[in-house]
Design a protein around this nucleic acid. Sequence first.
RNA 1: CCAGUCGGCCGGACGGCUGCUGGCCCCGCCGCCCGCAAGGGUAAAGCUGGGCUGGAGGAAAGUCCGGGCUCCAAGGAAGCACGGUGGCGGCUAACGGCCGCCGGGGGCAACCCCAGGGAAAGUGCCACAGAAAGCAAACCGCUCUCAGCGCGCAAGCGUCGCGAGCAAGGGUGAAAGGGUGCGGUAAGAGCGCACCGCGCGCCUGGCAACAGGCGUGGCAAGGUAAACCCCACCGGGAGCAAGACCAAAUAGGGGUGGCCAGGCAUGAUCGGUUCGCCGCUCGAUGCCAGGUUGGUUUCCUGACCCGCCACCCGGGUUGGUUGCACGAGGCGUUGCGCGAGCGGCGUCCCAGAUGAAUGGCCGUCGCGGAGGCAACUCCAGACAGAACCCGGCUUACAGGCCGACUGGUAAA
Length: 128
Amino acid sequence: MPLETLKKRAEFLRVRGGARWSSPSATLETRMRQHPDQALAVPRFGFTVTKKLGGAVDRNRIRRRLKAAVMELAAEHARLGHDYVLIAKPLALSRPYDELKKDLEVAFHRVHHARPAKRPRPPTGTTR
RNA sequence: CCAGUCGGCCGGACGGCUGCUGGCCCCGCCGCCCGCAAGGGUAAAGCUGGGCUGGAGGAAAGUCCGGGCUCCAAGGAAGCACGGUGGCGGCUAACGGCCGCCGGGGGCAACCCCAGGGAAAGUGCCACAGAAAGCAAACCGCUCUCAGCGCGCAAGCGUCGCGAGCAAGGGUGAAAGGGUGCGGUAAGAGCGCACCGCGCGCCUGGCAACAGGCGUGGCAAGGUAAACCCCACCGGGAGCAAGACCAAAUAGGGGUGGCCAGGCAUGAUCGGUUCGCCGCUCGAUGCCAGGUUGGUUUCCUGACCCGCCACCCGGGUUGGUUGCACGAGGCGUUGCGCGAGCGGCGUCCCAGAUGAAUGGCCGUCGCGGAGGCAACUCCAGACAGAACCCGGCUUACAGGCCGACUGGUAAA
């Protein structure tokens, strides 16, 4: 199954308001989809690789490595109805692939369990 | 073999597991058609499974020139302004590119470099230094006449001053008004002569830039045009987020019409006719129906605003399709040309994403460096990522390959 990706700036901005956790390779953010009937939708991912990290060649490679790792991990760790955004760090280019995956596994775990402890937020996406 | 010059090329290879994307195809489901049925057919979009095949660069980069293509503007033009180009000839769709040649400069040479039109059209500028930087001028000087003084028997010599002549030497400068030499002179000076340079004229060669020769002038004409400027040639503007099309839903905009006065029957006119009738138009008679919609204004007719309905038009947003992959195309071969290139023939179809695919991980080998006799071990692997396409330029680049030529050295 092809990876569903975020395509609009507004979608990225919305996820920025959710839970986040930083690993050495990248920062992971997540937030539930807005409408209740999307609670069982397949998770979607967005990748942010800023120009600060290098030229087009390096940034392409970083994005592809992160994407490959996510595709391996998504089935087990990503939750339905969630959107995820990965913000790459410089280490994402040079870190051994196994460690990169471990970073993301930890990030998935932390970002799911940190949520209730943070500032109160409605458990499901509501429009209030 | 060493040193060097020029041109061309490559930019790791193979394999395994697992993905993305374009194209083509197959099986099945759903749909539609045929059929009583079994089954068959079809296929726009979609779903599941599968197969085959294509998928980053020499610079994809910088976005500096030139084109194609699209829209806009306009008179298919010309001019002005502005910008660009600048030896000559050629190549090209075009160019500020390329090729050949000319001129100047550099190198022993192969070869390299040049923004290389005009300074007697005009204007400006030429710092500092220097007397003087454009019109010729004279600081130290050089020469001569005369007068004074000193020395000397005298010829004369020295010195100072006035006047006249000169620009060789010194000095300043990036540059001081042709250079070198000889003659000449009081000293000098193109004043004269020779050679070189320069200007002008003619002749010869060349398409031309230009070169060579002859004659002549007698030096008159400094530099700067990446200073203004003059001359010649070129250029309309904006760009694929150009432009074209489709589909939705919501809100809103514009226009037109309506929110009533007519309808039916009989009759007549004209046209058609299958002679049954049908259609058009007209007024007469009869029958049926009716007096409008919120606000403002007005005595009323009416006017204006709003509302509702129908149709049409245009714009915005979102999504999709197209533009968009057959082209000044690649490869091979052949003819012409010194060459850039041009032509013929054969053959191939070769990335098309759009939060943006062309990958991720691993192994083996090869290349380069270091260590080691070796097996081997450890490092390193550049510059850099298509976005409408093409021709160039410029810039970046680890490492490597091929060819031609030059100067040495050695051997034959």
